[in-house]
Structure formats: C-alpha cells, structure tokens
Design a binder for these strands. Structure first.
Length: 124
RNA sequence: UAAGUAAGACAGGCAAUCGCGGCUGCAGGCGCCGAAAGGCAGCAGACGAGGAAAGUCCGGGCUUCACAGGGCAGGAUGCCGGAUAACGUCCGGUGGAGGUGACUCCAAGGCCAGUGCAACAGAAAUAAACCGCCCGGGCAGAUGGAUGGGGAUGCAGCGUCCCGUUCUUUGCUGUAUCCCCAUCCAUCUGCCCGGGUAAGGGUGGAAAGGCAGUGUAAGAGACUACCGCCUUCCUGGUAACAGGGAGGGCACAUGUAAACCCCAUCCGAAGCAAGACCAAAGAGAGGCAAUGUGGCUGCCCGUCACGUCUCAGGUAGGUCGCUCGAGCACGUCGGUAACGGCGUGCCUAGACAGAUGAUUGUCCAACGACAGAACCCGGCUUAUCGUCUUACUUAACAC
C-alpha cells in the first residue's frame, strides 16, 4: 500500500485503545489516534465470537482490501483500529465498504467528496 | 430398473483488471535504514492451503536436558501371523455376533491366585429344604378285618322252682345275630417330630451341566445315549484354531476384570514459544589511562557517579531451524494383501499479527458444504453441499 502499513504490535493496539477516539455502528468499532507520521497504520481485530478461522480471516481481508481500494480518500497521519462486531458475520463486500466509510466520516478523516458519495448507501 | 454393499476420484471452471506472500533472475559492488547482525526499496518470471489444513487422541523423526546396571511405582496395549521408523494403525487369518445376500461389527488374555460387589425380587445369592415328593415314629379321627370280654334276644341241651290239665320261674353250657368296650392289623385324612430328596413350583441377569431314558420309597451323573465341560493323545496348520480318538463322570461349581488385581509386552522428560548462532543497552570481572570533573558540602576527610579496551554472559532486535522428504508420479519385479526392491522422471506454500481478496464477464448438474498450513511425517476420530467411476449382492421384468 502506498500510504499505509499494518499495525502489528500489541503495544500499539493498546495505545490506540487507551488514547484514541472511537465511533461505532452495527458492524464495526473504529478507534483512531494521531501517530505523528506521514502515514496511516491500520489494524483489524476480530474476536473468536465472530466465527471460525475462515470467517475471521475473510472479514479481515475484505476490510483491508476495502481500505486499500480507496486509500487516497483517507487523511494521513493516524493509527486506525477496526474491531469487528458479531453482526458483521456473513456481510457482503459492499456492505462492509459502506460501513467503513460511515465510520470514516464520523471521524472526519474521509474527504467530503467521498463521504458525500457514501451517504447514498444505507447503514443498518 | 429399483434397493443396497464395498472401494476410489473431485471439492466450482475459464478470462480480464487491481492487490498480497515468499522464491528465482537482473545482482556483483549501487540507493535507503541500522552501532552491528542484518533488513528494505525497483523491474521481470513462474509458483502459492485441505480432504479433512480441524480435534490434538495415538505413534515416529528432529532438538535440548537426564541416563553404569537393576528394581518399585505409574501409564498404555491385550486372539494369531505379518507389514512398518513406529503405533492403540494397516493387511491376511481364527473364533464369536448380525444380515436372504454382497458384506459389516467385536478392548476377543486370566474370575479352578486372591479380595471385593451383585439393588429389587426370591425360602435361599455362593450358599440353600419355603412349598412340594418320599420314608419312619407319635397323636386324633374315619372305614374294614381279626381276637378277647360284656350285654340283649332267639334256639338247643342239662339242672332247678311252680305245677301235675293249662299257665310258668331261674341258673349253667353251647350256638347264631345285633350292640358296646379293649387290643392288634390294613387303608385314608389332619397335625407334630425325625430323616431322605434339588425331579417339579415361583423370583432373578445368574439357583449347582442341558435334554431324554433307566432307576428309585421319592429322587439324584447314581447309571446310559447325544450335546457341553475338563484331562490327555493323534492328525492338519508357523500360530490362533479346527477335526478325530480315549478317559473323567462334572469336584472348583453364577456373573462382573470398561472392579481391585494377576500374567505378557512396551514406555526417560519436555517440546519448534524445542533449540543453534549473531548481538545494542543495562548490570558484572579484569587491564590501561587519569589523580581530573560533579554531587553530599562553604572547606578538609570520606564516599558515590563519570573514560577507554578486553572477557564471559546473553536481554531488546536479527538470522537459522524451515521445508529434498520414511517425498510425489509412472513403469517393472516379489508378495493373496498391507508393503517392499529396482529403474526413469519431477521439485510441489514456507509466513512470524501470520500471504488467496474485490470487481466484471462467461459456463455448469445454477449461488457451490465442512472449513485456513504454522517444525515435518504415519494414522485415528469428528464435520461435510453435492457430482462421478468401478466391482459385487438382492428383487422384478425381458431374452
């Protein structure tokens, strides 16, 4: 990814949880915290309650892919942690995409033009 | 054609675009990050999850630690033979159970080494007379018979009294019938006592080998035939075992070892976060330099910290372990088979927060189940939408 890398250390996750701001909808909880660099770092956390290994892995890939496809829409300089809730089990790609932009808009890190486009899709 | 049995294969396909992972080449030396070890970045190429990758239930390799030898404890396995690196796996057989059959299933050593347990029911549960059957004795009753005694009546004889026409007393003896009593015997019934008996009864998972006959007071392996059991011999088989002969007449006498236990065989422990190597910082030891600077403290003494080099140690971090292996495919030979030998060809994920996704088009038996490698193998178990292939069985129809 051009502007981003993944968030890896448990320490980094805890830092974002403790100091960052969070918003949530029915599919995800999103924490963000400014990391003081030129890049975004994104991490995905999925509980075992959501499903078995295949289900969790697939959701993670879809979220990363969704972020990657529209990476340029996000403002840089943040650590982002997406926690997947149980309701996301079995969601389609389009629904994950709309939910992700909904949270990005609440955090005001998605550009207005992209956010405007996403309000057309309903968030349940 | 239908129903079924066994074995096996596949696990949505294709194309385009964007994206991910390590590998190979350009590549050697450059650029960037780092103290170092080492890592990162560019372009191109091919490759990139499973039959169960799962559960982590067994077995082995590998690694570190421990280890003279022996024993105890603990654990696992348990018909026989073979395969294998090994196994609780697989193959072939034996025995048993199920199915019309193809075929399937089986913790299948030992409770005549010991100990324990066996609810309820039942007379009694590892030892037994509750009922029943039979024998003997006693008591009571009934029936029948025999003997004896007594009484009544009839008859006969003799005697006696009255009488001498009639009427008629009484005794004794014999005999017949009836009644009563006693004793004995037989049969039956009831009760009691002593003994025999495990054939029958009902309970139970299990009641003292089964079943039929002989036999007996009644019964009983008491005896006999068949079956079972035990001992022993012969034959076949490597063996489990099978077939046959002879004997014992059945004692220990039931079940349970997935109860303790006994017997035989096997097992050192922990696991890739194993472990090996490189290696900042901090703390440690020694050498060298200096006699300095700073703090306690304004001064003296004292004390603490600060330099550099080497060593051991190994933290953060990094590299290796990490995928060429009991490997796969094909052929051939040996073997019933599991499997093994030989030959040829091939290289087929290797991450370390952990790579396969999205969109579009198209095809199908049409929305595709269960499910994601984590050191590697051999198995077992569990989950699973469906599709296909082969062999065989049964039934119906046709020929």
């Amino acid at each position: 990814m051009k502007f981003s890398e993944s968030l890896k250390k448990n320490k980094d996750f805890k830092n974002v949880y403790n100091k960052g701001k969070s918003y949530a909808n029915s599919l995800f909880v999103m924490y963000i915290f400014p990391n003081g660099t030129e890049q975004n770092r994104i991490g995905v956390s999925i509980s075992k309650k959501v499903g078995n290994s295949v289900v969790r892995h697939r959701l993670k890939r879809q979220i990363i892919e969704c972020y990657r496809m529209s990476e340029e829409s996000f403002q840089c300089g943040y650590d982002i942690v997406v926690i997947v809730r149980k309701g996301a089990q079995g969601s389609s790609y389009s629904r994950i995409e709309s939910a992700l932009f909904h949270l990005g808009k609440l955090h005001k890190i998605v550009s207005a033009r992209q956010a405007q486009a996403d309000t057309d899709i309903d968030i349940i």
